[in-house]
Computed example of a mutant assay.
Amino acid sequence: MASSVFRLAPLPNPPVPLPRVPGPKLAPFNPDARADIEFVEFVGRENNLDSQVWRVKINGAALHQSYFCHSETLRTGQGGDLARPLATSQLYCRANGRLEEEKREDLAVKAYGYLLLTPQQEIYLARKELVSGKAPNPHEAQHMWSDLDNLHLLGIFVGDTHGGNCVGGKLVDFSRSWTMYHPASVHIRDSELQGLMLEELQHLLDYYYLLKNSLPRTIAISQDLEAFCSGHISKYNNLPSAYNWLKWEKSSDMAKAYVDGKLFERAAL
């Protein structure tokens, strides 16, 4: 049986925008993609298999940083031949790159660039005591559904919308996202894609119910979101696969040929 994995070149020195394939990219945070980092507070979930999200200080500035700590567990798709492990975490930059292209960085916590951690920083992270972040207030929570809907319009399937993936009502982690172009979003059956969309929307709806019961002021839950999660997902029109990603490419023919023939290479198990 064959499987498909990413075959990307090692990171160049000095660093360049990633990933090194056609499509959206994220530039390094600074010229050498290294920095002295003060890890202030963990704001994600302790049992997250994909990544850790931290509040950090870099040169005195307060930021959020996602650290991809278990990249071998991530998958490009769900089910069948599309459930295959990623060979690199480079492609996790694509969602933030798309938001920068479209000037819609308001839809998630802004990404200022990527950093490469030193071995010492990784050891330090492994020893840190994790502290949970605070839930959003009612005003922040109110826009989460419209933000997710807009992310879909920009060709981004988040796939991971639980409460631990949000800080102040904004997404901080795109480690499971598919950003067009992505083979899984166009080559799986419509019924499977609808199932994945339903699962993503249901996670958000569950989080809304949790917030509604815990916040001091009532928040309104979109009737559209509740309807889609109640069996009407086939009527959801904003599928990420409809996004025209080729509009950003200098040569759309070359970019399409690359992703069709080289982005995923066949390799025997």
Results as ranks from 00 to 15, higher is better:
residue 142 Q to E: 12
residue 123 I to T: 09
residue 30 N to S: 04
residue 38 E to R: 06
residue 198 L to K: 05
residue 178 W to Y: 10
residue 113 G to P: 15
residue 93 C to V: 11
residue 175 S to T: 11
residue 266 R to V: 10
residue 45 R to N: 13
residue 66 S to E: 12
residue 100 E to L: 12
residue 5 V to W: 14
residue 148 L to Q: 08
residue 118 T to E: 11
residue 103 K to F: 03
residue 268 A to I: 15
residue 40 V to E: 06
residue 154 L to G: 12
residue 162 H to I: 11
residue 249 E to D: 01
residue 44 G to T: 03
residue 104 R to V: 01
residue 90 Q to K: 08
residue 50 D to R: 06
residue 211 L to Y: 00
residue 198 L to H: 08
residue 151 L to W: 13
residue 201 L to W: 01
residue 126 A to V: 09
residue 12 P to I: 04
residue 124 Y to C: 07
residue 220 A to H: 08
residue 89 S to Q: 14
residue 75 R to P: 15
residue 236 Y to D: 04
residue 115 L to D: 13
residue 215 L to E: 01
residue 55 R to Y: 03
residue 125 L to F: 02
residue 175 S to Y: 14
residue 45 R to F: 06
residue 243 Y to M: 08
residue 79 G to W: 13
residue 186 V to S: 02
residue 200 E to V: 04
residue 181 Y to D: 05
residue 143 H to F: 11
residue 116 L to P: 13
residue 201 L to C: 01
residue 217 R to N: 00
residue 213 N to E: 06
residue 212 K to W: 03
residue 86 L to I: 13
residue 252 S to A: 04
residue 226 E to N: 06
residue 64 H to S: 00
residue 237 N to D: 12
residue 233 I to H: 10
residue 130 L to A: 03
residue 120 Q to G: 08
residue 264 F to L: 12
residue 32 D to P: 09
residue 128 K to P: 02
residue 91 L to C: 15
residue 255 A to G: 05
residue 167 V to M: 10
residue 25 K to C: 02
residue 107 L to W: 11
residue 165 N to P: 09
residue 255 A to W: 09
residue 191 S to W: 12
residue 62 A to G: 01
residue 265 E to S: 07
residue 41 E to N: 14
residue 21 V to C: 08
residue 174 F to Q: 14
residue 62 A to H: 08
residue 164 G to Q: 13
residue 261 G to D: 09
residue 57 K to C: 00
residue 163 G to A: 08
residue 167 V to D: 05
residue 149 D to Q: 14
residue 57 K to T: 01
residue 41 E to K: 10
residue 62 A to S: 07
residue 65 Q to G: 08
residue 144 M to R: 09
residue 266 R to Y: 08
residue 202 Q to T: 00
residue 178 W to N: 09
residue 229 C to V: 06
residue 53 V to R: 07
residue 267 A to W: 15
residue 60 G to R: 06
residue 38 E to C: 04
residue 132 S to T: 14
residue 123 I to M: 10
residue 3 S to C: 13
residue 257 A to F: 11
residue 197 M to F: 14
residue 72 E to S: 13
residue 5 V to M: 14
residue 92 Y to D: 15
residue 158 V to G: 02
residue 206 D to T: 01
residue 102 E to C: 01
residue 68 F to T: 11
residue 109 V to R: 11
residue 75 R to N: 14
residue 98 R to N: 06
residue 81 D to G: 10
residue 225 L to K: 02
residue 57 K to P: 04
residue 143 H to T: 15
residue 40 V to F: 09
residue 199 E to Y: 01
residue 93 C to A: 13
residue 57 K to H: 07
residue 269 L to N: 06
residue 58 I to D: 05
residue 124 Y to G: 04
residue 60 G to P: 06
residue 49 L to A: 03
residue 80 G to T: 09
residue 87 A to D: 09
residue 35 A to C: 04
residue 93 C to R: 12
residue 244 N to V: 03
residue 85 P to C: 06
residue 263 L to W: 13
